[in-house]
């Protein structure tokens, strides 16, 4: 795992605000009354995961995640910090998590918005990582040893895997082919581009 990552002061502020925003919502109570039909199992599980995330926080404060709106518990927003000692260091990346009605039998989808320049992120921002795919769903033929989705996984476990993925791209199952090539052929240029995009994002 990447070690604890220190945010610049300004960023700490933004992150704190966002965490507060998520905390302050009264989503749990309003949503529980809307549970119905086939997705009530998924809803209950999502509420439990959200409760655990907000009470425990993420390990090392590497990310936050929660529903975007009270009206829809199946769409979350996650903020992921770029791990230290990687070109992503200093960045905070916003991703949308979309949950299926049979979660956790099926995995959720994760999409960075704006897209992230990374070998395992499709140009549209969708994260391509084995843990978000069931054994039968294999877009890039992940190597056999890779971990797959199972109902035992969770938002927290996936986000930690994504953070590891930022630090160590998996070129065996690339999603952004140009990025894979650049990473392989000219890593310094890849790192420069990543750092450049983070500066742009932060408006520096």
């Amino acid at each position: 795992m990447p070690s604890r990552w220190e945010l610049p002061e300004a960023m700490q502020h933004t992150l704190f605000d966002l965490i507060q925003r998520l905390y302050n919502r009264t989503i749990l109570t309003t949503m529980s009354t809307r549970a119905s039909g086939s997705n009530s199992t998924a809803l209950r599980r999502l509420m439990t995961e959200y409760k655990q995330l907000t009470s425990g926080g993420s390990p090392d404060g590497m990310f936050t995640a929660g529903p975007i709106s009270e009206a829809d518990f199946f769409t979350w927003e996650a903020l992921v910090c770029g791990p230290k000692d990687t070109p992503f260091d200093g960045g905070v990346f916003v991703a949308k998590l979309t949950f299926p009605s049979d979660y956790p039998l099926s995995p959720f989808k994760m999409r960075f918005d704006p897209p992230l320049f990374h070998p395992n992120v499709y140009p549209d921002g969708t994260v391509c990582i084995s843990i978000l795919h069931t054994p039968g769903d294999d877009p890039t033929m992940y190597e056999q040893a890779s971990e797959r989705w199972s109902p035992v996984q969770s938002v927290e476990k996936v986000l930690l895997s994504v953070i590891s993925m930022l630090a160590e791209p998996n070129l065996e199952s690339g999603a952004n082919i140009d990025c894979c090539k650049l990473y392989r052929d000219n890593k310094p240029e890849y790192e420069r581009l990543v750092r450049e995009s983070i500066k742009q994002q932060l408006g520096i």
């Binding site: 294999d138 033929m141 070129l171 199952s173 690339g174 082919i177 894979c180 392989r184």
Partner: peptide, 9 residues
């Protein structure tokens, strides 16, 4: 072929 992309079944 892209040897680092074991893409196609």
């Amino acid at each position: 072929p892209e040897p680092f992309l074991s893409g196609h079944p």
